[in-house]
Nucleic acid binder design. Structure first.
Lengths: 217, 217
DNA sequence: CCAAAAGTGTTGCGGTTACACCCATGT
DNA sequence: ACATGGGTGTAACCGCAACACTTTTGG
């Protein structure tokens, strides 16, 4: 009835986080992958992530790993699901809290570390077979991403500091996977009222210069 | 560099689940609460829940606790957030996976157990100060509930096996917290096409009998 | 002058809202 | 007969989708 509970009976699982980092660049929706280190998945790509620390709030961990990979960067980070099937990690019981991260299309050089020794952007349409259950996590993240961008203003973090309306529209189209009408799109954006017109135009190409905007602060 | 990792360094957290069980009854949105057992929160109410087992998928745990409380029952269970602030549980590091559960308005008698020795339905408008961070969890759950009922057909699991259109409308109104137009509501429900007309009417009250429906199977 | 993207309004349709009266029953 | 909720249709409105031409620059 009152058996003594041993710590290893209740502290049986490793708590980890996996971060699905999205970026729109070169007319593509990209996800950040990194080489898996565990022997079981040698040479396979995986979502970046790692253990949560005993002394950190779980929401802090994904930001820490993101910074470890890319340095300090503007980002939107949001938890979207906890993955906890018994056998999702062959090394033992690992429960992963999965986070969605959106970052602007700057050119980042990856910061190499013991943990993340090789990283790469992948077009989401061209993602290889991933380690663990990471293909499933990515699939769930893609659904969530569309919801976010459609329903909220999460698009903001996917944009560079200055951009044209056409570039903004492209970003939407790439994320949502559908073409949008230019005039209707501009009416909608106008109504949302989160853009600020800059005193600059984008020039240097063989057509009419486009007005530059930034996100209203 | 390659320090040996001790299990207690990475298996530091207790994994738990908390279940926010909603039911619409007596014109009210009710949530199921149970008396906390830990000395720190003696005599306080808390969300039902408990530890996840080393050998069970995390998604199975909330269903197990729900059954422990109410027996086998029709329900809709859905994970909605992982709560993992370092100090959310004064006894130590506990990460809780929170689930939303919707059940029909049957009269359930609570199954008493060592764990759930006293349980009660509370109107969500009248919930006391809860143990742990459970008020915050409940708040998040309420937001999620509205989304679900508004955007999907989750309403189904909140209804009894037979009901009238007015009762269905009441359920929506109670969950959404707003009045709906009767004729417009019926047009919408008609369009959604998930009801089946029964050969019965609800009688025995001082007004015109109402057509009974069930959820299409 | 040609190519290429920027920029700009109006119309029509469909879906949602607003709204009021008669019906069937129990007491 | 009266009180109570059950049941039903239509008109106005608004938001969204469809749609094409002129402008400005670089080459």
């Amino acid at each position: 009835m009152t058996n003594k509970t041993r710590p290893e009976d209740i502290k049986f699982a490793v708590l980890a986080t996996d971060v699905v980092v999205f970026q729109v660049q070169n007319w593509e929706l990209n996800v950040l992958l990194t080489k898996a280190r565990t022997p079981e998945f040698k040479d396979m790509w995986a979502l970046p992530g790692g253990l949560i620390k005993p002394t950190e709030d779980v929401d802090k961990a994904p930001a820490r790993y993101l910074e470890m990979l890319l340095g300090k960067t503007k980002s939107h980070i949001e938890q979207f699901h906890a993955f906890g099937k018994v056998n999702r990690d062959p090394r033992g019981r690992v429960v992963s809290l999965a986070y969605l991260a959106l970052i602007p299309p700057y050119l980042h050089k990856f910061k190499k570390s013991d943990k993340f020794f090789e990283s790469e952007w992948f077009n989401v349409k061209n993602v290889p077979s991933l380690a663990y259950d990471h293909n499933e996590i990515l699939k769930t993240a893609l659904i969530k991403l569309k919801e976010r961008v459609e329903l909220t203003n999460a698009i903001k973090t996917l944009m560079p500091s200055e951009f044209t309306l056409t570039e903004l529209q492209n970003t939407y189209e790439i994320v949502l996977g559908e073409a949008l009408d230019k005039r209707n799109f501009r009416k909608r954006v106008e109504a949302m009222d989160f853009l600020e017109k800059l005193d600059k135009k984008k020039e240097g190409h063989a057509h009419r210069p486009a007005q530059l905007y930034k996100i209203k602060s």
